[in-house]
């Protein structure tokens, strides 16, 4: 197997996704088949090749340091599933 059950469980933890006991075999299998397909990229030597991050062969544009964005607190907080008049609310964060 190109990817095993344990790896799938670790990936799920990182991605904040749950894979149930009944799904894990199928998920492991399907991810394995994708990895198998992906592995073709190792067929070519690319040692001297510069990675291409973006098709735009240009550089980052710079923005002047000005405040033009307005903030709409009531609008933003109204979109949240759980918020009061000041804060977004989440189950207590333990530090």
């Amino acid at each position: 197997m190109l990817i095993n059950r344990k790896e799938v469980e670790q990936i799920a933890v990182l991605a904040k996704l749950a894979v149930s006991e009944s799904e894990i075999e199928a998920v492991t299998h399907s991810l394995g088949s994708v990895v198998e397909m992906i592995n073709h990229i190792s067929e070519v030597n690319t040692d001297a090749i510069k990675p291409m991050a973006n098709p735009m062969d240009v550089v980052q544009r710079l923005r002047a340091d000005k405040v033009t964005e307005t903030s709409n607190k009531p609008q933003l907080l109204a979109m949240a599933p759980n918020a009061d008049e000041d804060y977004y609310l989440v189950p207590t964060v333990v530090e």
């Binding site: 340091d65 033009t68 964005e69 903030s71 933003l76 907080l77 000041d86």
Partner: peptide, 27 residues
């Protein structure tokens, strides 16, 4: 000490009321 944020033109002034200096990007 910039006027606006790193990637959005949102005010950075310290001490504003909670979530009042949040543009769509920060949210």
């Amino acid at each position: 000490k910039t006027k606006s944020k790193l990637f959005a033109a949102t005010d950075t002034t310290y001490g504003a009321s909670p979530n009042s200096q949040v543009s769509f990007l920060e949210a």
